[in-house]
Design a protein around this nucleic acid. Structure first.
Lengths: 372, 372
DNA sequence: TAGTCCGTCTTGAACGATCAAATCTTGAAA
DNA sequence: TTTCAAGATTTGATCGTTCAAGACGGACTA
């Protein structure tokens, strides 16, 4: 257990005051070049790390980002999506000098209580919300408390006065790509296996399929005939496809709103091309073509939006000072290059219009496998 | 943003000193009944929460448990196992007044560096290590630094002078149960599809199968003929079963060391009963019988072992004091009933022999589905 | 020469809790 | 009544950092 080195130790070693050491770490531009070097050397030699607790006490920032780890879902197939996101979040946050604090909650009310609890004790600097949907009270609560947060998932049916930053993947674009792929392969009778109306994510994904088929000249009547809705689940998917196959004109391909349904569709047998959504491990295992969300990228964007809000002022202030990249590896506030790469990298649309918060819409990709 | 209430505010409101408030929260037994009541009321009315940062500064404890979130594995099938464990860990930790802090690391060296980093800045009170295997340097490092930790996974090939608490699931018992199930169903030619020798987990699981078949009168020659080793993966599993079926005497059932291999085995076709390991979502989706680890229980045991080490002294001291269950909902050190239910609940063996650290070995269960 | 400003560095206070030791209360024994 | 110990409560110091304000020297201006 290394005896802890304090800022006073460093100051003594470098023959300066505590505050100067602090300045070297946090606002290097106000310190003379030579002093800076001396202090940095002392930091290196003594192996100094800033104590997060002490810093938090003075500044009120914890450098923690809270995220919820979701309970395993019904069949657990889609759970892995969130886990991959969480992994990316942890990595990106670490790069920006933040850590991810986990919490659980069974429902929205419990989650609000947990917010309150966390804020009272650990005081995370920000929250990342996932699985947003209609009637979600969490964003409103956080807005009211003025706690910074980002959602992974668009605001669905949120009053227009509630504005906040978000990152999402363009589900409609994903299903559109999937549908185009099937059209190009010669299919005409392409069904959509979706969730019951009323889910933001589900309706969005359906729209991409519908739009693409409409553009290909499929009329509204045929479209609604091809549009099948059911609860999520493997057996549900199997039943749905069985029904579709038994119906009048045969369906030759199915675009599914989830891999669960798609797996079911495959199991139903029959000569049907199937495309799933989310590219879960199951899809890989059974050779299911699926729409893949760029989860690592999404997580990185979430962190970028958060650091904009959290370190924004500091970073902007710093960028006026001229020299010396503050390459602190001492646990001092990391200076993420704000909006780092958030511009024109990869297929995505970032909007930062005026005073309303930024949001990012990412494009998913289609992963081709045996099933279509 | 609720204006923060400090211990001084509570003291003023209750007409006592700061220290008395602190005592009510941390050592209630030294405070007179009536004062205690008055302070508790003040805490309630003002909505006081102890600041973790301030507390950590004085006591050195962060009430954080660090755990690594693993990168998605090759095919991601087994990844979900860890995620379920992590979920349980977060829940159990919260119940004990701790939070889970995530980190990532690509290899052991990077992980050691991250340990160092975390300990320098956030100073988690303990670590939970997963995926332990031969030559794992992490435990030794933490032991040397005298940082409390638990591993989920037995110490494989660890020098006998390195003792530390662990929790694990009895893999051999799992494969034994699976094998017995197949024997009971009339199978005699039961192969084992395992990983190459040298993996602690893999060899353990193999041993359960081997032992059971031996007990059933299968000779060593036939046993080694039935013992098949390959890298993990769906295609690998398919190839292995194809080979087994092509061989001389036909195999009628396969016990697999992982669901990945089992899925492959199923895909190979042929009339073979298949049992996997880990009961991943994929297994559920495709109807694969699989050995299920009690991951929530395992996580709870990990937390129990940790709180024994961390709050042990405090909890023991407290349990001598007579009355007043310190029902603090104020963020004060939670008083977990030590070893709560860690005794004779469920099928498991807990060992706390003398001075060596406790460990827990849990029994997995077989989840029956179509495949066997 | 004095005054002002700027760049650089230092000093004291504060964040909110707990520890250690001092002080005040109370009640029983002498 | 005095004495003393145990019980209950308070006081002062401290954890390690950053903020706010001040000190110091030199350059530049008036």
């Amino acid at each position: 257990m290394a005896e802890k080195v304090t800022i006073a130790d460093v100051a003594r070693y470098a023959n300066v005051s505590r505050q100067t050491v602090s300045n070297v770490l946090n606002s290097p531009e106000v310190v003379r070049e030579e002093t800076r070097r001396r202090v940095r050397e002392a930091v290196r030699v003594l192996g100094y790390r800033a104590s997060q607790a002490a810093r938090q006490m003075r500044t009120g920032r914890s450098r923690l980002i809270a995220a919820r780890i979701e309970p395993a879902q019904q069949d657990g197939i889609n759970g892995s999506v969130f886990d991959r996101f969480l992994h990316g979040l942890t990595e990106s946050a670490a790069r920006a000098g933040y850590r991810v604090l986990l919490y659980t909650a069974d429902d929205h009310d419990a989650e609000l209580a947990t917010f309150d609890d966390l804020l009272g004790v650990y005081v995370p600097d920000a929250f990342v919300l996932t699985s947003t949907d209609y009637g979600d009270p969490r964003a409103a609560w956080l807005l009211e408390q003025r706690i910074p947060f980002v959602t992974f998932g668009r605001p669905w049916g949120v009053p227009p006065d509630q504005k906040y930053p978000w990152v999402d993947v363009d589900g409609a674009a994903g299903t559109a790509t999937a549908t185009r792929h099937l059209l190009a392969a010669g299919h005409r009778r392409i069904a959509f296996l979706g969730w019951p109306e009323g889910s933001g994510v589900g309706d969005d994904r359906r729209s991409g399929w519908a739009r693409t088929l409409a553009e290909a000249g499929i009329g509204p009547d045929e479209l609604s005939e091809l549009d099948h809705r059911t609860e999520d689940g493997v057996p549900e998917g199997a039943a749905a496809v069985t029904a579709l196959l038994a119906a009048g004109r045969p369906v030759t391909a199915v675009v599914c709103v989830s891999d669960s349904l798609a797996i079911g569709a495959l199991q139903a047998g029959g000569d049907v091309a199937v495309i799933g959504f989310d590219d879960t491990p199951v899809a890989r295992a059974v050779g299911l073509t699926s729409v893949s969300q760029p989860l690592g990228e999404a997580a990185a964007r979430c962190v970028a939006l958060l650091t904009d809000m959290l370190d924004g002022d500091a970073a902007r202030r710093r960028s006026h000072g001229d020299a010396a990249p503050p390459d602190d590896d001492t646990g001092a506030p990391a200076n993420t290059s704000v909006n780092q790469g958030a511009g024109a990298r990869g297929p995505s649309r970032t909007t930062t219009s005026g005073d309303s918060p930024a949001h990012v819409l990412l494009e998913p990709t289609l992963v081709h496998r045996r099933s279509a």
